[in-house]
Simulated assay, not measured.
Amino acid sequence: MKVLALSPIPEEGAGCRFRISQYLPYLASQGIDVTVRSFYTRDFFRLVYRRGHFLRKSLVFLGLLARRLTVLRELDQYDLVWLYREAVPIGPLVIERAIARRGLPIVYDFDDAIFLPNVSEANKAISFLKDTGRPARIIAFARHVVVGNEFLGAYARKYNPTVTVVPTAVDTTRFAPRAGRERLPETGPVVGWIGSPTTYHYLEDMAGVLKEVAGRHRFTLKVSGAGKPVHFDGVSVEEVTWALEREVELFNTCDIGVYPLEDDDWARGKCGFKAIQFMACGVPVVAAAVGVNREIIRDGENGFLASTPREWAEKIERLLTDASLREKFRAAGRRTIEERYSLRVTAPRLAKILQEAVAVHT
């Protein structure tokens, strides 16, 4: 069985890496041969979230579009198209409609509320090019729709009854706790935030909370992925450049993880993945009490949920000062991921979806 996987982003993007690429070895063991074609190159993926450079972005984009159209000549080689988010980030659904006209089954996967108007700060000038109705049209002609949480599933079922929730998972043999975690650095515990330029504003909104806690307890705030220099008044900040090859190590250098979000529909479409990564590495986490975080975290049992600045401050402080609580969350959080959010659980489910989509077609 041969599958063509189309993603707008390369493996450097978490979506492609964790919704597609990490499954390839298991799928191959089940006789499913997957070829991945990303729209963005690695270099363009780095460029696209930088402010400005619109002429350069436009010229490179046109070249990438021409390259993407060449997949239409390859479709006869495949039994199925596994589409993550969209074949091309903006514009008409030329690729998707061509695939559907060929009668090739599509398994459509998305893990964000891409049907809502949300554009990065770096690209707001071209926000008018984003068509939020595109996901609904793709969903309608997909053979099977796979989503990362039930909020997304409820949207997808408006247009297609064949929808399955497969949470974003991790390989728990890679994302695993390091030995000797409780040997805290002399500068105090490390509170970690790991994200991207598009999510950094959530951490900025916590500046007052972090300053308040830092006034009473010594800790270092480790920040990775902000995309710009980070300074919070009254808080000791360590900035670390994100690198794919050091991803697991980065989570494992944190003693407490924070995962702030706003309470809105865009956040409800998120899949709680940073909480999952922290917990897989045995890092106690405080997360926004929003969306799927409420399913992943049982407040006070395997982590903390917070809704107000007071709750954020109190719960971060409890973890900073209580080693036994950190140990409790470390073990319980890891167990949650192993039981519900590991490849061991999700890979067989995904393989079955792909196989059945082809079986129905034939």
Rank of each mutant, 00 (worst) to 15 (best):
I126G: 03
V107R: 07
Y200Q: 10
I106L: 05
P135L: 11
F141A: 14
V81Q: 00
A169H: 09
P167G: 11
G148A: 09
G192N: 03
T164D: 12
K124N: 04
S120C: 10
V81S: 05
R143C: 06
T168R: 02
D109K: 06
V81P: 02
M206R: 13
D112Y: 00
G148H: 01
S196M: 12
P189N: 10
F141H: 13
D111A: 05
H201F: 14
T172M: 02
L93H: 12
V94S: 01
V147Q: 00
A154S: 07
F141W: 15
V119G: 05
L83H: 06
V163F: 07
G208T: 12
I138G: 07
G192L: 09
G91H: 13
F151R: 00
T199R: 02
F128D: 07
L116D: 04
T164K: 10
T164R: 09
N160V: 09
A100F: 11
D111G: 03
I95H: 04
P135S: 14
F110G: 00
L104Y: 03
A142W: 08
M206Q: 12
V190K: 13
T164M: 06
V145E: 04
S127V: 07
A154L: 01
N118P: 00
R181Y: 06
I95W: 02
Y200K: 06
V170E: 05
P105N: 04
